[in-house]
Write a protein that binds this DNA or RNA. Structure first.
Lengths: 231, 231
DNA sequence: AATTGAATCGTACACCGTACGAGTCGATCA
DNA sequence: TGATCGACTCGTACGGTGTACGATTCAATT
């Protein structure tokens, strides 16, 4: 465990402490632990993206050797799995929100899901390729229960759940990958207008330039819910 | 196969004469070309997955040196872009199909889209991260035009298009990533039943075991279209 | 015959994941 | 006290990666 450790490092610095260099050099790192590794991996992913997560770089940030990580973790894939699930935890809202009806509950959970992934854009494209972690399964369970209680027929339940899952996944992945740098955005814009003659309807509706992602997500979700359970 | 008459060899055979080398050696590869590179990349991706595409391996299959590819292609990313777009071409159905109404037209295009990606499972997870190639833009243009002609209000058009895009992307990516080996599937199944007490509703609805992906896709699409344009 | 330019490829470099084995250190036991 | 052990850390090494760079080949043109 990580917590107990401040004693050891102070002991260490006491022992060697007479010489002055030990006082103000490298900030002594706490010992490695799964939690610290996962938290640091999330930070690294946030900062550098999927391609920026390297066992060596991760170890650097932790102030340890690269191979030390392998005591706590089986391989790099496991780091991804843990980082991903750690980011998808859901704290259900207080009862007051629940009382506003199943529809509000579903919308709240799915919007929170999307928001969690957009806070860590690497997570969206990672999720479909990794195993379903406990936090994801908890969300699916909650969704199932809510829809079931809302009266969705058992025969339609799976289709309803998958439709919502698909919609959220697609929306979030797309949104995250469209979050380009300004340079990229300018380049894409330029490329598109150059080709606009071939795609007049896209051009006219300004499909690729509309920036109201949140509103579009909400509206589309409403349409889908209308189809699933007409009000 | 290293087919090339390499410099070293030709120099040597000049010296030793014309005897055995010329007639029946390795089948001469056609010269490199963009199309051949892309086609071979698709084959390699189909066979080995995203991680299996390597410039060296690709060159091996082409019977060329790895660095020769860089004459035709800027970098590895471009190979991905080209392979991806080459797989998403859409040949619109004959008029007869069109006459069955806009809804049939939309469903046909989206099901074909999904089918194309499932034929090349690497494509689904790649698409959201890459630029929109011409074949994708053509599909979006067709979708826009059809929905617009079907009477979807201009104000709702973008939301409708993105909702459909999101749904298809999510469904296809999820489907492709659930296409595990039997071993993986067995392991997942075991893990889930072990945890079934925590996720009773998921367990009861057999959410993760239902294998009728095509039917679920179609039904969910119908729900969404119902919401978008009530009939 | 000389020149040119498109196309090919060998070598080299920096970086990657991780197998392997040796090292450190606190706790436990003789 | 000293020996032993287990948890943990890390240096080195290996086989792989993408690609920069420069040398080379060869057909066409001068």
């Amino acid at each position: 465990m990580a917590a107990k450790r401040s004693g050891a490092q102070s002991k260490r610095s006491q022992r060697t402490g007479v010489s002055l260099q030990s006082v103000q050099e490298a900030p002594r790192e706490p010992p490695l632990s799964l939690e610290r590794i996962v938290a640091t991996a999330v930070g690294l992913l946030d900062a550098e993206g999927v391609g920026g997560l390297t066992m060596r770089r991760l170890a650097d940030r932790l102030g340890s050797g690269a191979m030390s990580l392998y005591w706590h973790v089986g391989n790099k894939e496991e780091v991804f799995d843990l980082a991903l699930d750690s980011v998808l935890e859901y704290r259900a809202p207080p009862q007051t929100v629940e009382s506003q009806g199943w529809r509000g509950e579903v919308v709240h959970m799915l919007e929170d899901w999307r928001a969690s992934m957009l806070r860590h854009p690497w997570s969206a494209s990672l999720l479909p390729r990794r195993a379903l972690g406990p936090n994801i399964l908890r969300r699916l369970e909650l969704l199932s229960k809510t829809l079931s209680r809302a009266g969705v027929a058992d025969a339609d339940l799976n289709v309803a759940i998958w439709s919502l899952w698909n919609y959220v996944m697609g929306a979030t992945i797309t949104r995250a990958s469209f979050d380009l740098s300004d340079d990229d955005r300018a380049a894409a814009q330029e490329r598109l207008t150059r080709l606009s003659e071939h795609y007049p309807t896209i051009e006219r509706s300004r499909l690729l330039l509309d920036n109201d992602w949140d509103g579009a997500f909400r509206k589309g979700l409403d349409f889908l819910l209308d189809g699933l359970a007409p009000r």
